[in-house]
Structure formats: C-alpha cells, structure tokens
C-alpha cells in the first residue's frame, strides 16, 4: 500500500522533470524567436489538441490519485466505513491533549483521529522521526474534525499543529503520540528505540 513517502517522492521526481522540461522549452523558444527563418501558419488543430491535453491532464490527475492514493477513496467514504478505534484529541489554549497517550494503532485497521478545538483553528499533523508528513487535517473550532487513516508499517510518530494559531501556537508538538505495531514491515524513517 502506498504511503506518503511513495507519493511525495513520485511528486518530487515528476515535478523536477516537468520543471526542467519547461525551462528548456522557454530557453529554446527564446533563442529561436530571435533567429531568421520561415514561419508556417499555426494550425488550429494543434491548438485544440493542446487544449484537450490540458483538460485531460488537469482532470486526469484526480482520477489517477483516486485510484492510486489509498487515502482518497477512504476519506470520501469515511462516513460509511467502520473504524476499529477512535482517538479523541482536544485543543485548548495552544495545548494538545490526548485522551490516550500514546495512541496505539493496530496495523492495517481503520482508525479515526477525532479532534476538537475549544478556541482557535489549529491543525493535526502526524509526522515521522525524519519530520516528513504522514497525514494531516485542519482542526476548526465548533466543527467536527475526523480523520480516518490506516497504517501499514510499524513506527513511532509525533504530532504537531499544522495550522498557525498565533505566535503561541508555533511549537505545539506532542512527541511519541502515535505508535503503530503488528505490521510485517517497519517504517524505516520513523523507528524509535525504547518505545
């Protein structure tokens, strides 16, 4: 099952190739435009093909991720999926309080992180030990903030507020907040000894 490491490294690769390609294209164009040479009339068919490609790429990305990124269908259908466990998290006065600490998550089971803010808008982000992001949601006061997730690797994760809530909220971190166990595979970027 793909996790955020797979998705983000694919993004890094694809976007870097794309960026280098368009930079080269514009450089080539800038050179050619100053040169003498015959200019053939631009064909409208090329233009409309290009527009079709743009529409396909723009909307196709969402079909692609819906089918390849496991948390998209899970998120859209979370109201109908039965979860194994729900973890309550409360935010107040720039402090994150966990009902259960650490939150012990069974492997490959649906769990829900249910966060509630009593004052400001915060964020709920789960991070690996190398600080890469596993998942996140916004924590909006007066609203339900439920994030369904399924972990496929063993690891110890910390949580951090991912939304700005004033200068006091810049370091809202809870170490070793989520521990996943029972998987066959370890999350090599998030293993911690002694936990």
């Amino acid at each position: 099952m793909a996790d955020s490491v797979d998705v983000l490294s694919t993004l890094k690769l694809v976007y870097t190739i794309y960026a280098l390609a368009v930079i080269s294209l514009i450089a080539w164009y800038a050179y050619r435009i100053t040169q003498q040479g015959e200019v053939k009339p631009a064909k409208k068919a090329i233009f409309w093909t290009y527009v079709t490609v743009l529409i396909t790429m723009g909307t196709g990305l969402h079909f692609l991720t819906f089918n390849l990124v496991p948390w998209v269908p899970m998120d859209l259908d979370r109201a109908n999926i039965k979860s194994e466990k729900t973890f309550k998290i409360t935010y107040k006065d720039h402090v994150i309080t966990l009902d259960e600490k650490p939150m012990r998550v069974p492997c490959n089971k649906y769990v829900i992180f249910d966060a509630y803010s009593e004052d400001l808008t915060y964020g709920f982000g789960i991070f690996r030990q190398d600080h890469s992001l596993v998942t996140q949601m916004q924590v909006v006061p007066g609203n339900g903030n439920d994030l369904m997730w399924k972990f496929g690797k063993n690891g110890t994760y910390y949580i951090r507020s991912t939304e700005y809530s004033g200068p006091k909220g810049a370091q809202m971190i809870v170490q070793d907040a989520v521990i996943v166990s029972g998987c066959q595979e370890d999350d090599t970027k998030s293993m911690k000894k002694g936990i």
Binding site: S4, V7, L8, L11, L61, H62, T65, F66, L68, V69, W71, V72, D75, L76, L133, V134, T135, Q136
Partner: peptide, 8 residues
C-alpha cells in the same frame, strides 16, 4: 488542489 496530494 487534489484530495490525495493536499493531505500531504
């Protein structure tokens, strides 16, 4: 602006 990518 994609549900999969925005999460991360």
């Amino acid at each position: 602006a994609d549900l999969g990518m925005n999460r991360v």
